[in-house]
Computed example of a mutant assay.
Amino acid sequence: MAGIETSLKDAMIIDGALGAALGDYTSGMALGTAGPTETLSVAAAAGTDVLRAEMRALELVGQGNQKLEDILISLTGQYHLIRPLTRHPGLFLYLMLDRNRSNLAMARHHARRIEADLEV
């Protein structure tokens, strides 16, 4: 099992990783960050809004029984991956990835492994 700091350091070894945060979507606060701290704190707060909106949308369209694995935000130069943590309800992993240097499938796989090992 890995703590928050170790898990975030592990996230930073993902090819193309620019930053990572562990967020609490009940409060909108980052519990920890790796990378540009100020940017990631804001991203975690914004990720909270995105996550809440998607969960609400799933309920509205009758898909509330589906498990949300992750949310991908594609920018011209970056991917932002938001993964709600099943083992730790209310928490999510936020990854910022360089679009030209990352492999999205491997990043998603790595995020699942980080979640499995995380101990809060």
Rank of each mutant, 00 (worst) to 15 (best):
H88S: 13
S74F: 00
G77W: 01
L97V: 10
V42Y: 09
N100M: 14
A30Y: 11
G32K: 09
L8K: 10
I71V: 14
L60Y: 02
L68F: 00
L75M: 14
R99H: 05
P36V: 11
G19L: 06
G16T: 07
F92D: 00
E59Q: 12
R56H: 08
L22E: 08
G16V: 09
L58H: 03
I13Y: 02
N100S: 15
S41R: 15
I73M: 10
L95E: 09
E54Q: 08
Y94P: 04
R113N: 11
S27P: 03
M106L: 15
L93V: 11
A2S: 09
L93S: 08
G3K: 09
A34T: 05
G28I: 07
S74K: 14
V61L: 03
V61C: 06
P36W: 04
L22A: 05
G35Y: 02
L118K: 10
E5F: 02
L22V: 10
A105S: 14
R56E: 13
T6L: 07
R113S: 12
I4H: 03
M96E: 14
L31K: 13
L85C: 04
A17I: 08
D24Q: 00
I71H: 01
L85E: 01
L75E: 10
R99S: 07
S102V: 07
L97G: 06
R99Q: 14
A53W: 01
V50T: 13
R83Y: 07
L58K: 01
N103F: 11
L22S: 05
G77L: 10
A30C: 08
K67D: 05
G23P: 06
G19N: 05
Y25I: 01
G35I: 07
Y94N: 06
I73K: 03
E69R: 05
T39K: 14
E69S: 07
M106F: 13
G90T: 06
A11D: 04
R52G: 01
G64K: 10
L75P: 00
I4C: 04
A46M: 15
S102R: 10
R112A: 10
P89N: 03
A2E: 11
Q78E: 15
L18C: 13
Y94I: 04
I82H: 01
L68T: 00
A17L: 09
S41V: 13
Y79D: 09
V50S: 04
I4S: 02
F92V: 01
A46T: 12
T6H: 12
S41E: 15
E54M: 02
H109T: 09
E119T: 12
L81S: 03
R101F: 13
R108T: 09
T48S: 11
G19Y: 02
D49I: 00
G47P: 03
P84S: 02
R101I: 05
S74D: 12
S74I: 13
T86S: 14
A44K: 06
N100W: 08
A17H: 08
G62F: 03
T39F: 13
R108E: 10
E5G: 01
T48L: 02
R112H: 11
A105R: 14
E54N: 06
G64E: 03
A44Y: 12
